[in-house]
Design a binder for these strands. Sequence first.
DNA 1: CTCAATGCAAAGTGTTTGCACTGTA
DNA 2: TACAGTGCAAACACTTTGCATTGAG
Lengths: 134, 134
Amino acid sequence: MEKYREIGLKLTPQRLAILNYLDGNKEHPSAEDIYKAVSKKFPMMSFATVYNTLETLRQRGSLIELTIDPDKKRFDPNTKPHHHLICVKCKKIVDIYGDYKLPISNSDKEGFEIIGNHIEFYGICLKCKKGGGE
Amino acid sequence: MEKYREIGLKLTPQRLAILNYLDGNKEHPSAEDIYKAVSKKFPMMSFATVYNTLETLRQRGSLIELTIDPDKKRFDPNTKPHHHLICVKCKKIVDIYGDYKLPISNSDKEGFEIIGNHIEFYGICLKCKKGGGE
DNA sequence: CTCAATGCAAAGTGTTTGCACTGTA
DNA sequence: TACAGTGCAAACACTTTGCATTGAG
């Protein structure tokens, strides 16, 4: 795992397990998802370590904290600019890479200096549509 | 408060106070903000009532639950389609009404039936820029 | 008068923290 | 070896729930 060394973290087995789990992960997992998955290989893993590691990664910009789910934080290891498509029934989240032009009129800006944006598309996924919902 | 009658709720003083506080409110308050504000006039107001009322209003579509803040839910009495401009420093949230065309390619859709979208613009507000930040 | 709404307190989630111990660098 | 990282449990913040009481319709 050469790529991890360069971010300047101590490479503990726990962190490696978390990093491995997150690498390329497109499920936007919550802290609990991560804890559960990693616990399988490291049964003595603690929540504190998961949260500590996530916070460290977030500070280094290796991770994005999503505010998409009203009930808990979710984490996205994909730091490239992208948007999300969210199933309102099963809460599945899918990445979207479309490049959208989003000009804001100066009156709307109210003096803000814009530094980025994020679009949430809401919809119903194929599985929920077929399954009749819920 | 004629306008409230038509939504078919029992008009208790507590609900009226909450409805009055929310009416035209552009601050995207949290449940605690609402509780604090309304408690001034109704000191015996309970959190349960605030949450109950918010949930009832949400179910009737008279209110939108925002997932903008990672730490708590915020509520928006403005049910007209609109987007938000968020100051990353002071967390101030401003409404934006720009009409954005956001086509999604079929390959991106992955079978989803799109029913809506919401854009979050991130930036730094005038006050935070002048104040030198934080 | 009835049943929905309220108030209170307890319980439930998700997240954070204090502190002694451990293992990477 | 030093000190960042870990594990545990307690503490926190926000939200939900159970239940006896109240009051709007």
